[in-house]
Design a protein around this nucleic acid. Structure first.
Lengths: 117, 117
DNA sequence: GTATTAGTTGAGCAATCATTCAACAATGAT
DNA sequence: ATCATTGTTGAATGATTGCTCAACTAATAC
């Protein structure tokens, strides 16, 4: 996702490009942003996130709810954990997951808004 | 993204699973939602969307801004178009793209919020 | 100690995806 | 008409990714 420094055409609206260019942040931050949204970009993960909006749940509960293996769920939870989208607490053998903060719900809601408009 | 109807463990908290299960929407809608967020899940596309937040631009402008080929940009714009995230108008040979509605900005902003917290 | 259950992890595989390349359509200039 | 330029599109390819499988850790019960 990085290739040539120049495009294959002339710049048509130099003024516009310059102005927009100044308002952009770093490529690294866009990649971070994309990595965040990538986590919302999978059916299983959005189901997990939406489910956790209602209640904290353990891995088995989520697996049962979605009809998946513990392994599959755990892999996805790890990704969500690394991005600080979910947090967890351990109680004996059981690990309970819940949403890390309100941003998750807000992002999901904006997405639903767009779909349902 | 669909496999076995049951998980590989006992349901631990039947009450919770039942309650959460009732608040969930259809799997199809979650997949649609994921497809939407998937479009935000690529560095190039979030750059395009954030750029269009500032000003409408033609394909060449965007290509020049990001150092990509027209083809690459056009492919991404097509995906964004199909999801109603951007709209366009033609003027002679030039096609100008802009954001379709305010949801795009709102979603991007929520994402930045999460990153920068 | 052993056995059981909840959960994690790494490798492997099939599917998805972003870019490149080459060919094409569409408009305007000559 | 031909040429130049903007933009689109389909196929191909390399990279990413989600799930499975098997092996593993952690905590509890016996």
């Amino acid at each position: 996702m990085e290739k040539q420094p120049f495009c294959d055409c002339e710049v048509i609206h130099g003024e516009v490009v310059k102005k927009v260019s100044e308002s952009m942040t770093s490529k690294e931050e866009y990649i971070e942003l994309a990595s965040l949204f990538k986590l919302f970009g999978d059916g299983t993960r959005v189901q997990i996130l939406h489910a956790l909006e209602q209640s904290e749940m353990c891995v088995c509960d989520i697996a049962a709810l979605l009809g998946l293996t513990k392994s599959a769920v755990s892999h996805q939870l790890k990704a969500l954990r690394l991005a600080n989208l979910v947090k967890f607490r351990r109680e004996a053998q059981t690990v309970y997951y819940s949403l890390a903060d309100s941003h998750v719900k807000e992002i999901l809601d904006k997405g639903f808004e767009h779909l349902r408009e």
